[in-house]
């Protein structure tokens, strides 16, 4: 599903003393099946942006299209439910939203709400827990007896069980240990590829954006600040610094290497071990 924002603005509590415009005249395009990272500081408008994708917020100005659905300032979308069936949103700390008696019931809640048949729900629950790598034995347990990491996975399974075509992830690895973070991102990337999803990742990790995204959109004060392919965009240290973002550590290191040795090693998505080999070669040659 293609997504497009045309001159979208959103104002919280308009015509009150608390009026606040969180996004302003924002235009972006996200191609179907692409993996897009959205980066920006707290207050840059990221959360406001993603809440438009499934119609939780309605633009104050401008127009948004998500596949065949259109959200605009003066028109109400009649097929809101249909839109929400297609756009799965994993909010920050999604485990806070678990509520059912058992893990199985919690995962089934979404599809059940959308009128999916019982048999099909069973299939989807099974598939979803396989994807998030939860053992089947946990299905009949209370979600509140699970560990933090398992709770996170169970709540994500609930979103996947709706079979969305667009998956929106709002800092999905926050609070996990380093391996948990890596496993979780690998899982989302596998899902993205196997289910041919359009994935939108809100993150503070420049490393994850560099590793997984086809395109990065940087927001600042509710407007689009930069947009592009991560490996190119992240080379502009000055521009990133202006909005208090750092370049990914590996790129920073390559800059410093060049400064010290006068040898330029371009970033080409090398792994750490490939990079080590390259550095060793260069040092031996020069």
């Amino acid at each position: 599903m293609d997504i497009s924002f045309k001159n979208v603005s959103y104002t919280y509590q308009p015509n009150t003393p608390f009026e606040f415009t969180a996004i302003q005249d924002l235009s972006i395009d996200i191609n179907s099946r692409s993996f897009v990272a959205i980066i920006g500081h707290t207050g840059s408008g990221k959360s406001t942006l993603i809440q438009h994708l499934n119609g939780l917020l309605h633009p104050t100005k401008g127009e948004i299209t998500v596949g065949r659905f259109t959200l605009s300032a003066n028109q109400k979308l009649k097929e809101m439910k249909e839109l929400r069936r297609n756009v799965g949103v994993v909010f920050q700390y999604p485990e806070h939203q678990l509520f059912e008696e058992t893990v199985a019931k919690d995962i089934a809640f979404g599809p059940k709400n959308f009128g999916v048949e019982q048999e099909e729900i069973g299939r989807r629950v099974d598939q979803a827990i396989k994807f998030v790598q939860l053992p089947e034995a946990l299905l009949e347990r209370s979600p509140f007896d699970l560990s933090g990491g398992q709770m996170r996975r169970a709540s994500i399974a609930g979103v996947l069980a709706m079979n969305p075509q667009i998956l929106v992830l709002d800092e999905p690895t926050a609070g996990l240990d380093p391996r948990g973070q890596e496993d979780m991102m690998e899982m989302f990337y596998k899902l993205h590829q196997e289910k041919q999803l359009t994935t939108i990742l809100v993150t503070h990790s420049m490393e994850d954006a560099l590793k997984y995204a086809d395109k990065v959109i940087i927001l600042n004060n509710g407007t689009k600040y930069m947009e592009g392919v991560p490996a190119e965009l992240f080379l502009d240290k000055q521009a990133l610094k202006k909005v208090q973002l750092d370049v990914p550590e590996v790129i920073e290191f390559l800059f410093e290497f060049e400064r010290k040795f006068g040898v330029s090693l371009p970033y080409q998505k090398q792994s750490v071990s490939e990079l080590a080999t390259e550095i060793a070669d260069r040092l031996k040659r020069s």
């Binding site: 391996r179 080999t277 060793a280």
Partner: peptide, 29 residues
């Protein structure tokens, strides 16, 4: 045990593996 080491330490380890001898274990760039 579910943890990792920072980028610099990982790179230093890989460098040692390909024959670049480092005297101590660096902590930063």
């Amino acid at each position: 045990i579910g943890l990792n080491i920072p980028f610099v330490a990982r790179l230093a380890e890989e460098l040692t593996r390909v024959g670049v001898e480092l005297e101590k274990h660096p902590l930063n760039h």
